[in-house]
Each structure stands twice: as structure tokens, then as C-alpha cells.
């Protein structure tokens, strides 16, 4: 095994991966991921594309996120979750929505096929708004928009006043019952800054969600945004949301 790791490992990964990713990988293998070098914050601007037409509601993202980020297991703490929309025939504005345990356990069939209804899944996560209402209201600067476009939390500085939770129009924040400070999706900042993708994107089997770097001209996100009808959640909130949805139905809140 060791020989194989040395022989195949080093050579083939360097062929497949970009330099940064390979360097990060080396560090993963050595068990010192925090030492991954060469990440320049100013060169990135992170966003996510979510393709509702591809989401199968398997819940992989929810489980992977909870595992990766140590999210509490109670059914009301989620950095990402999946909602199921059921839009009855002839009533496009009044959907029935559910998200049992945030989609962590998948979605047992609940609706009958062929009743004329429209049914689909909507994965949700922090929109990493460029004009975040949550950042605006934080009294001490414990949550902020990073130079590379990610809304992060400074857990050693947060008061736990919950004002940001109130200010988020999308319900993306919660108070971690273990630390009593706010918690939310970080776009897996510890991964994307080391050349890896987020835990949810890594485990999404259909590429329904993909992290993208808007400052990288070669990133496929540009092609996706150009060739699809894109919308954001609650555009009337004007938050500069960077979670871009393809196939977002008007009934989605």
C-alpha cells in the first residue's frame, strides 16, 4: 500500500490537479492541511451555482456538511438543508413545502405521481451576500464579508446576541448550542482556500451544486451563468446574493 501510494499518488495527482490543489493534497496526505501555501485572498471571489433541475434530494450535501463542519445534529441546526416543493395543479403561488430533518434522511415519498402537481427539491445554504444584512447588523464585527467574498463568523468574538439571525432573510443562521455563538455556512472556507471544493459539492452526486470563483476567467461558473436562466432567492431583498439558482420556480421562498 505504501509503495503504491508513493508511486501512483504523487505522479498521477500532479498530472490531474492544478498546482494549488496538488499542494493542498500533499498537505492533506501529510496531515497538515493548514500549511497549504499560496492562497491569495484578493484573487478570488467565491459564489455557488445550484441547479434545481439536477437536485435529486438525496441529502448527501446535508450529511456531508454536518460531518465536515461539526454541525449539531438536532433537526433545527443546518448550514445547508434541502426543501421539497409541491406545487398543486392550478395553484402555482401556493406551494406545500417540507424539509424533514433538513433533508438529512432524504425524502420519503409523500405525493402521488400524475396528480398534475409540480414537485422539485431546493437546496439552501448561506447566500454569501455581497451586501449582507447579517454583517450590517453585527454590533461588534464578529461576522464579516471576507476579501474573497465569503461571509464568515469569528467565533472567538461573537457575543451571541442573535441580531444577525434575525436579519438574515433566508434563515441561514443559527446559534450553536455547544458554543453559544452563531454558526452558518462558510463555503467550507478551510477547503476552498486549499484548492478543494466544499463538502456539499464534493458529495453531490449530480453536480447540482458547484462552487465557483468569479475572479477566475477559466472557471466553468461563467459558462453556466451565461447559458442558464439564473435567479437568486428573494431578489427583492437586494442583498447581493451569490447563490445562483438555475430553474428556480417563482413559488420558491
Amino acid at each position: 500500500m505504501t509503495t503504491r501510494r508513493e508511486f501512483v499518488g504523487k505522479s498521477s495527482t500532479f498530472l490531474v490537479l492544478s498546482a494549488a490543489a496538488a499542494a493542498a493534497l500533499d498537505n492533506v496526505l501529510e496531515g497538515t492541511p493548514e500549511k497549504a501555501p499560496g492562497y491569495k485572498k484578493a484573487d478570488h471571489w467565491w459564489a455557488m451555482i445550484i441547479d434545481i433541475e439536477k437536485c435529486i434530494g438525496c441529502g448527501n450535501c446535508v450529511r456531508a456538511c454536518k460531518t465536515e463542519n461539526g454541525v449539531s445534529m438536532e433537526p433545527y441546526y443546518f448550514r445547508t438543508w434541502v426543501e421539497r416543493y409541491h406545487v398543486p395543479a392550478g395553484n402555482p403561488e401556493h406551494p406545500q413545502v417540507d424539509s424533514p430533518n433538513g433533508g438529512y434522511d432524504g425524502f420519503p415519498e409523500k405525493y402521488k405521481p400524475g396528480d398534475g402537481s409540480k414537485n422539485f427539491f431546493v437546496p439552501k445554504l448561506c447566500n454569501h451576500c455581497a451586501h449582507s444584512p447579517c454583517v450590517q447588523v453585527c454590533p461588534v464585527g464578529a461576522t464579516f464579508e471576507s476579501p474573497d467574498g465569503v461571509v464568515l463568523v469569528d467565533k472567538s468574538y461573537c457575543l451571541g446576541c442573535r441580531y444577525c439571525v434575525q436579519a438574515c432573510p433566508y434563515g441561514c443562521r443559527y446559534i450553536d448550542p455547544k458554543t453559544h455563538v452563531v454558526d452558518k455556512c462558510s463555503f467550507c472556507y478551510h477547503r476552498i482556500t486549499k484548492g478543494l471544493t466544499t463538502a456539499c459539492c464534493e458529495t453531490c452526486p449530480t453536480e447540482a451544486r458547484q462552487i465557483g470563483d468569479l475572479k477566475n476567467p477559466a472557471d466553468p461558473i461563467h459558462e453556466f451563468l451565461r447559458t442558464h436562466k439564473i435567479n437568486v432567492l428573494k431578489p427583492q431583498m437586494a442583498t447581493g446574493s451569490k447563490a445562483y439558482y438555475n430553474g428556480l420556480d417563482g413559488s420558491v421562498r
Partner: peptide, 17 residues
């Protein structure tokens, strides 16, 4: 935020071996 430990290795790491 960056120093958080990785839990998923990523498919590239798997392909390595």
C-alpha cells in the same frame, strides 16, 4: 476559519492511491 481540519479528503486524494 481556514485552520479548520478537513473531514472529507476530496476525490483527488482518493485517486492518488
Amino acid at each position: 476559519n481556514r485552520a479548520f481540519p478537513l473531514v472529507h479528503a476530496g476525490r483527488a486524494a482518493c485517486a492518488g492511491c
